[in-house]
């Protein structure tokens, strides 16, 4: 029988914390997808040697403190305005890797105008869009992406589409815009899904470095506090309820200038 101490040696390390992830306890709830996606961004910026080139734009919402977790320069945006801020940074600093990190309340509701126009101009940025169908930080209210009949604190009887309209598919919308070159929908609930999501984010970053226009990576996520489920149950609920409405996969992978999917 091999002793654990003989395995736990630096030369045997296969998975550890990226140096760009700051040594602090994240404020997120247990099991929150934000932690996973933060980790992926930190790993990629680290692995691709982009620390000195990167400027992140943090949203308003649960990820408002993203700048406390990844060791790069950051700007904190007003609610929904991250794509405009990223535009300002990127236009004046075209050699930088600029990305926004936004939730569904931020991106799909109050910032719907800014994201559409940034994508339509083909701003050379990566947009990381965390869609968990709810407002997490303010306490679980309905988001534009909340599913029909889904219970939130402002739809206590479930989302009534006659009253509140329909769940908004932002990713399908921006895929129609000629300014985007890569539009994909991912998830991060299992190890294979996380690995796939990382490949998608990497492609998005590559596209920014290659000045290919806007890359848009949605990550269908959970909000187990807002959904009032355990993390494991939330993952299952997401697979059963979110994925049919928000199907995973690439919507567009091509060149700027094409209005529709060409994959």
């Amino acid at each position: 029988m091999m002793d654990i101490k003989e395995i736990v040696k630096p030369e045997n390390l296969v998975y550890g914390k990226s140096e760009l992830l700051i040594d602090t306890i994240m404020h997120y709830c247990p099991g929150c997808t934000h932690g996973v996606v933060h980790k992926l961004m930190a790993e990629l910026i680290d692995e691709m040697g982009l620390q000195e080139k990167s400027v992140g734009v943090a949203p308003v919402g649960c990820a408002v403190f993203a700048y406390n977790y990844i060791d790069i320069d950051w700007q904190e945006a007003a609610h929904g305005r991250a794509p405009a801020i990223a535009t300002g940074i990127s236009r004046l600093n075209p050699e930088k890797f600029v990305f926004t990190y936004q939730g569904d309340g931020d991106l799909a509701s109050i910032g719907a105008g800014e994201i559409i126009h940034a994508c339509n101009r083909g701003e050379n940025i990566l947009v990381v869009f965390i869609n968990n169908g709810i407002y997490g930080m303010t306490g679980g209210q309905m988001a534009p992406t909340t599913l029909e009949d889904m219970v939130t604190s402002t739809t206590p009887c479930g989302r009534d589409v006659d009253l509140n309209g329909y769940p908004l598919k932002m990713t399908e919308l921006v895929a129609q815009l000629p300014g985007t070159s890569y539009v994909t929908r991912q998830s991060a609930q299992t190890a294979p899904a996380v690995r796939k999501c990382k490949r998608a984010l990497k492609k998005g970053i590559r596209n920014v470095l290659d000045r290919k226009g806007t890359s848009f990576v949605e990550v269908v996520s959970t909000c187990n506090s807002g959904w009032k489920m355990s993390p494991a149950k939330a993952n299952k609920w997401m697979e059963e309820n979110m994925f049919p409405y928000y199907p995973l996969g690439d919507l567009k992978d091509g060149e700027k200038g094409n209005p529709v999917s060409n994959n």
Binding site: I7, L13, Y15, M26, C32, K39, Q189
Partner: peptide
């Protein structure tokens, strides 16, 4: 890989 808090380090021989 799935740990949201990146508190797991993995070794293999």
């Amino acid at each position: 890989v799935v740990c949201p808090d990146t508190c797991i380090t993995v070794y293999r021989v």
